[in-house]
Design a protein around this nucleic acid. Structure first.
Length: 216
DNA sequence: ACTTCGACGAACATACGGGG
DNA sequence: CCCCGTATGTTCGTCGAAGT
């Protein structure tokens, strides 16, 4: 993938003044997992990366869009979406990634055959709805599970543990919208530029309001 | 159609060497 | 001695091929 997940994670970890062990402890993973991700020697799943980021006050969406600046433009061309992917099988394109104080999270999601948000079910505040554009996707929400095909849709509370998987043989494309920003635990963070992190980690980590429970 | 088995990758536990 | 990041070996789950 083109996005350097490892480098960004490393910079963010430095930004918040955390060691690999400290972040691992907060996230509930091992330090070696953090190390492997930072070296780009593994391609973490959506669920795994979210779990790691739970150790810091930053969402998945912010993780991928924090370098896009901030501008309230209205129209977005094909090449003006925020692209991020997980391995080679799950790709997201978000419109308005750079929109200031964004309240809505609108994405075009592509799941290649075998594409999976991860074995660990996702769960966070908010609601999400979507429509399958092409292909088929298996959606598990709580105890419910269904394969949705083109033209079908879904709407659920993202507090419910959920998972997307493409069990078919052709890519699945869907368009989704969620309240706040998907994968987000709090409001938009004020994150300092990556250069600042590399040069001198701030004494006070960027502040953001948290909604979920979190160990200090 | 179903089961078995091997390959593969993610994640884990642990050990190692470097730097203060 | 402690903390750090990295390396290594192991476990586990998934997937596809082969056999019944």
């Amino acid at each position: 993938m083109s996005f350097d997940v490892g480098a960004r994670l490393k910079a963010l970890r430095a930004l918040y003044g955390l060691s690999q062990r400290e972040l691992a402890k907060r996230a509930g993973v091992t330090n070696s997992t953090i190390s492997l991700i930072e070296q780009n020697r593994v391609s973490p799943s959506v669920a795994s990366l979210k779990k790691v980021l739970d150790g810091m006050p930053i969402s998945l969406a912010e993780f991928f869009t924090m370098d896009l600046g901030s501008e309230n433009k209205t129209f977005y061309g094909v090449h003006e979406f925020a692209d991020f992917s997980f391995g080679d099988t799950v790709k997201f394109r978000m419109v308005g990634g750079s929109y200031r104080d964004r309240k809505l999270h609108m994405m075009q999601e592509t799941y290649m055959p075998g594409g999976d948000t991860g074995g660990t079910m996702l769960s966070y505040d908010g609601e999400e709805a979507g429509v399958v554009v092409s292909g088929a996707i298996e959606l598990t929400v709580g105890d419910e599970r269904r394969v949705l095909t083109a033209g079908e849709g879904y709407y659920f509370s993202t507090r419910m543990p959920h998972r997307f998987r493409n069990l078919g043989e052709e890519p699945c494309v869907l368009v989704s919208a969620s309240t706040t920003t998907t994968f987000q635990k709090g409001q938009a963070a004020t994150v300092q530029p990556m250069e600042a992190a590399a040069e001198a980690p701030p004494e006070d980590p960027p502040h953001m309001q948290m909604q979920g429970d979190r160990t200090p």
